[in-house]
Amino acid sequence: MILPKPRGELSAALFEALRSVPERTPPLPQFADDAADAALSLWVLHELSYRGFEDVDDEAEWDLVALGVRRTLERELEQRLRDRWPGNPAGGYDPDELLAFVEADDGPSLSSYIQKKATREETLELLRQRSVYHLKEADPSAWTVPRLPVRAQAALVELQFDEYGDGDPNRLHSHLFARGLDAEGLRSERGAYIDEATPETLEMNNAMSLFGLHRRLRGAAMGHLAAFEASSSLPSRKMAQGLERLGFNDQLVGYYTEHVEADAVHEQLAARDICGTLAEDDPGQADGIWFGAFTCLDLEARFARSMFERWGSQE
């Protein structure tokens, strides 16, 4: 992947600076032009810790100027997310309360729309937006492994082993998605559609990287994972039915049917064995778990509303 197209003064100056590493990087503008400029800049800075860019030296991941910008953007993002969070609804943490909280979520449903109403063009647009996440799928949660107490650590790896294909590269979830995209004639390389990623898509991905990359936010990372898994089984079935209705290829349909069964397991593991034991063994993380879970649903609701708005739908 090469650096995406800049979307404002900050991303333009930042990408220029990243290309100049390991030469001395020039000072950068302090502020982004708008949400898209900020979100794209942070997405690129986080990406340096995943796979990087062909036109950026690997040194850039730890360049102090780049890290300074990253930290500023992360603080702003975290504050925005915290300002939206109404707080721990229960005090402490209980897995059944978390699962009930996710079940009670009545945010707008993209999967119901895809299942029954969406056009092929709208569905392709959704797949391109989702590809920003699905092509790295389990990676943001993997950062948290060394930061957990022993029981939560074992449980997270048990879940992640399945995400990463149970040892079979062909079943690795992000690879399943890539093959489905490819079979549909879509681009399947990481970041392929980053230039059309909406600010909501970028923010959703940035939040996961933020939670994953900061040990302080380990509870939020696992709470996000639990809410994500618990809001996946039924929607994945609807996605599969919608894709079948619209004549999408079997591999792409298969990606979603795989998630029906996998996430019925993962939601139990994440809510109980990961978050449940984390809250017991590291009680200071209970609020973080709820913050992450709320943020997951909130980001999805904001993303869904933005897509319905683009499509002029009254959902």
């Binding site: 039924l234 079935r237 029906v260 397991v265 139990q268």
Partner: peptide, 26 residues
């Protein structure tokens, strides 16, 4: 079964029996 942990349906309403597909939530 190809995953290390599998979820088997107990509500008997799953569309993918014997596996759980989350239908109990409905």
């Amino acid at each position: 079964v190809r995953r290390p942990v599998v979820a088997l349906c107990r509500c008997a309403k799953s569309a993918r029996l014997p596996f759980c597909d989350g239908t109990h939530k409905l």
